[in-house]
Each structure stands twice: as structure tokens, then as C-alpha cells.
């Protein structure tokens, strides 16, 4: 029997959560402040949201960011899933060890180095910097996150289903598409979402690899933030938080439905 949590335990968790959420709450509340000054509460207002709508450059940056996130997350989900499959399902040899190391290295590599090295590559091969180069850079980093998420799911998966399909003469590629893929779909969705938000969030790698005409939202926010606090930035940030929160809620509902469907279809599976 596990002992009940002490008062100290509960207070630690509560304080930790308060520390994590208070600054975000302050930001959201002040985005609705009618006054330009942070110290003065001028009543609730949508004024700063209204000013955002007229900012064409900002809307263009948001569009660029969303498109890059969509493109890179799609490519990352494909490549990351293949990497996870190669690591978990194909024999242990030197190639697999190398791939595992290459999947883990970008996760701990400082962003300034990843950004710089990719930029130097693009310069060396004379590739014009812009939408494509940022997308390639984001794909490279986020595919590793997808690989980690999908790998965990593949390792837990009951292999007897795949083996049964192949014993009955189903070729490996088809086995993957009809048996494995539906079973790991929730992990793919989670990986895609993670890759999408990481891409949307990235400032450093995008700053190195972008070019004229491909300013992303974080690059734009960063240049604004350096000039000081502006209520408009509070409003952009609140919209971004709301978007991510909505995406997470939708995804978790979808995942719950998907996972309850797979477990009910597989009675007796652990």
C-alpha cells in the first residue's frame, strides 16, 4: 500500500504548476488590457487584436510559418516513421547503430550549431535560401523527434500480428501498410503534432536558414520583442497559445477514440 502524499508533496506539486502557468496567465490577461502600460489596468478590450488584423507583414509571417510547419511536419512524419521502423524492425548491425546515433544526435545538438551547419551546406551547394531551406532544416530536426515517439510505440507493439500476416504470404510493405500502420497511427499523429509545433516555435534554426521573403512568425516576434514589450505581441502570443491548446484538445480526443477502437478490436491483447 502506497503511503498517502504528505502536505509537503502536495504543496511542491501545486507550487511547481503555479510557477509554470502564472507567467502565461499574466500574458493572456494583459493581451486584453485596454491600456498600453503594463502597470495600468485599463479594463477589458480587444483593441490589440483589432490592430493585428491590419498588420499585413505579420499575417504573411504567420502564413509562412504555418506552411513551413505543415510541409516539414509531413516530411518529418514520413522520414521519422521509416527511421523508427528501420531501428526496431530490421536486424541489429552497424548500419542500425549508426542510424540510432544519427537520430539521437540532432535532439541534443545546440540549435545554433544545427542552424549554422545547415546554412553552410545550403551556401556550399548554392541553394537559394527561403521557404525550401527552412523546411528542409525543420524536417531534419523534427524527424528525429517523430522517430523517438514512433519507436516507443513500435517497441510496445505485439509483433505476432505482423508475423501472422507475413506467414500468410503478405509482402512486408503491404504488411506495414495494412497491419502495422493502423496500429501505430496514434503515435504518428502525436509525432506529427510534435513536429508541427516544434517547427512553428523555432527561431534559431529558421534565422540561419531563411532568406528574403520567408520571414517566419518567431523571427518577426523576436525582432519586435528585442525592441521591448508591446501589447500587440501579447495578443499574437495569446492567439498562438489558443491555437496550440485547441490542436492539442482535438488531437487528444481523436487519439482517445483511436486507441479505444484498437483495444476493443483486439480482445485479449495486453
Amino acid at each position: 500500500m502506497r503511503p498517502a502524499p504528505s502536505l509537503f508533496n502536495i504543496v511542491s506539486v501545486a507550487c511547481g504548476l503555479a510557477f509554470l502557468y502564472l507567467p502565461i496567465a499574466v500574458l493572456v490577461v494583459y493581451s486584453f488590457n485596454a491600456s498600453r502600460l503594463v502597470t495600468v489596468w485599463g479594463g477589458w478590450s480587444l483593441r490589440w487584436y483589432g490592430e493585428l488584423i491590419g498588420d499585413q507583414a505579420l499575417i504573411a509571417a504567420a502564413r509562412t510559418s504555418l506552411l513551413i510547419a505543415l510541409a516539414s511536419a509531413s516530411a518529418a512524419t514520413l522520414l521519422g516513421t521509416l527511421a523508427a521502423l528501420a531501428i526496431t524492425r530490421f536486424g541489429a548491425d552497424r548500419g542500425r547503430t549508426a542510424l540510432s546515433a544519427m537520430v539521437l544526435a540532432p535532439l541534443v545538438m545546440p540549435e545554433v550549431i544545427t542552424g549554422l551547419s545547415l546554412l553552410l551546406l545550403f551556401v556550399a551547394i548554392n541553394l537559394d535560401r527561403g521557404f525550401l531551406t527552412v523546411t528542409i532544416a525543420h524536417t531534419t530536426v523534427t524527424m528525429c523527434f517523430v522517430a523517438v515517439v514512433v519507436k516507443a510505440r513500435l517497441a510496445d507493439l505485439d509483433r505476432s500480428l505482423e508475423e501472422a500476416a507475413m506467414d500468410l504470404g503478405c509482402p512486408p510493405a503491404r504488411t506495414f501498410l495494412t497491419v502495422t500502420l493502423p496500429l501505430i497511427a496514434p503515435a504518428l499523429a502525436a509525432g506529427f503534432l510534435l513536429a508541427f509545433t516544434l517547427s512553428l516555435d523555432d527561431l534559431v534554426i529558421a534565422s540561419f536558414t531563411t532568406g528574403p521573403g520567408a520571414t517566419t512568425l518567431p523571427i518577426r516576434i523576436y525582432s519586435d520583442v528585442r525592441l521591448g514589450v508591446k501589447p500587440e505581441i501579447n495578443a499574437i502570443c495569446t492567439i498562438m497559445i489558443a491555437t496550440v491548446a485547441l490542436a492539442l484538445i482535438v488531437a487528444s480526443l481523436a487519439l482517445r477514440r483511436a486507441s479505444s477502437a484498437t483495444t476493443s478490436r483486439r480482445p485479449g491483447a495486453a
Binding site: 528501420a86 530490421f90 542500425r96 544519427m102 540532432p106 551547419s117 524536417t139 531534419t140 524527424m143 506495414f176
Partner: peptide, 25 residues
């Protein structure tokens, strides 16, 4: 062909966009 594809696609991508850039640095 499937095994080759699964192993080569991510390996080549990371070799081209992670290893090679580092060598360039």
C-alpha cells in the same frame, strides 16, 4: 526493396542534412 527503402531513406536524409553539414563546419 522495402527493407532497402526503409533503411536508406532516413539514413541518406540524415547523412545529407546532418552529417555532411557538420563536416562542412
Amino acid at each position: 526493396w522495402w527493407a532497402a527503402f526503409v533503411r536508406l531513406a532516413p539514413t541518406l536524409w540524415l547523412a545529407a542534412f546532418f552529417l555532411l553539414p557538420f563536416l562542412i563546419i
